[in-house]
């Protein structure tokens, strides 16, 4: 009898453990499907469910917060996906939240992703229909990949041709690859380039240092840029220069004006004289207008010159004459005494 009781107790423990395990499994599976705890409903309208099934997960901001409760045909081209979500995310889902159908990983289950809406919208109500964003389906992505693969094949063929030409063909690049001297030259060029770069860097650093000094107000340029009294001084200097110029140039300007007026008067007189010359019958007018008279006058002047020259010669001869020589010497002495 005691053995029978012991066996019955063992059986009871066995049954209880089995039932508890089953209950735990049911609880956890039910929790995953939001059968327990408070929840609210959202729905979205799609044209293609992309293999979504009742019970698939719903994620909000990447976290599983619910599951698909039902998929209903609205008409021949529209489906309504009804979702059950945990109450704890209700405050965060706004009216402008957007749902999309995706997959859990590359080959995982189909899921519904809900993207958060903007914070300035009111929160979604129970049973609210939120917007749906249709992502490109895998088939169209594969078609694009197919095109990309074709392009890659063409590219690799071209690259092969280029590399063969580089290895075997003529031109600069193959020469660079094959000729050791050219390679040495290129290396030297690169070395020079590196030296030039280093020099440029040093110059740049010096320039930077100089700029730093200028920024700190050191040196003439720095003083010019940073001295706050300089503009004021320049302004004073300009004012003084202006006043000086005005004072100094005024008499000059007045003289200039006077000269100008005199010049105008002289010019008027000259013009009157010219008119009188042209219109008159005097010697000058005759010389200007009568060619024969002018020629006569020219002959007279030439004769006069010749006469003068001959008179000079006569005077020179007279100086050497014994009758007048003493007089001229006396005259020279008097002149020397005066000088």
């Amino acid at each position: 009898m005691a053995k029978e009781i012991r066996n019955t107790v063992r059986l009871g423990i066995f049954v209880i453990v089995g039932v508890v395990l089953f209950t735990i499994a049911v609880y956890f599976v039910g929790s995953e499907q939001n059968l327990f705890g408070s929840k609210f409903r959202l729905s979205t309208v799609v044209s293609n469910a992309n293999g979504l099934r009742i019970g698939n997960n719903v994620r909000y901001a990447g976290i599983v917060v619910g599951s698909v409760d039902d998929i209903v045909f609205v008409n021949d081209s529209t489906l309504r996906i009804e979702m059950i979500l945990e109450e704890r995310v209700r405050d965060f889902i706004r009216k402008d939240a957007v749902a999309s159908i995706g997959t859990d990983g590359l080959v995982g289950n189909v899921i519904v992703n809900i993207s958060p809406g903007t914070g300035n919208q009111p929160r979604a109500k129970d049973g609210e229909i939120i917007a749906y964003y249709s992502r490109p389906d895998p088939n169209s992505m594969l078609e694009t990949l197919d095109t990309t693969n074709d392009n890659v094949a063409v590219l690799s063929k071209k690259l092969l041709e280029i590399s063969m030409n580089l290895n075997e063909g003529q031109g600069t690049l193959p020469l660079l690859l094959r000729n050791a001297e050219v390679a040495v030259d290129v290396a030297q060029t690169l070395k020079n380039l590196r030296q030039a770069t280093e020099s440029l860097t040093r110059t740049s650093m010096e320039l930077q240092r100089a700029m730093g000094q200028i920024s700190e107000g050191k040196g003439t340029l720095g003083y010019l840029l940073h001295d706050e009294t300089l503009p004021h001084q320049l302004e004073n200097l300009t004012t003084r220069l202006d006043s000086l110029l005005i004072e100094e140039t005024r008499p000059v300007m007045e003289n200039l004006q006077k000269s100008s007026r005199d010049l105008a008067a002289s010019s008027a007189q000259l013009m009157a004289a010219t008119q009188a010359l042209e219109a008159g019958d005097g010697l000058a007018a005759t010389i200007l207008k009568d060619t024969a008279a002018a020629n006569n006058l020219r002959d007279i002047l030439r004769n006069l010159n010749e006469g003068t020259a001959r008179f000079s010669e006569d005077m020179e001869a007279l100086k050497h004459n014994f009758l007048f020589r003493r007089y001229f010497k006396k005259l020279e002495k008097e002149q020397k005494k005066k000088g």
């Binding site: 499994a25 049911v26 956890f28 039910g30 995953e32 997960n57």
Partner: peptide
């Protein structure tokens, strides 16, 4: 485990 088991399995 429980993310992937549904009542349809259990």
């Amino acid at each position: 485990v429980f993310n992937n088991i549904v009542f349809g399995d259990l």
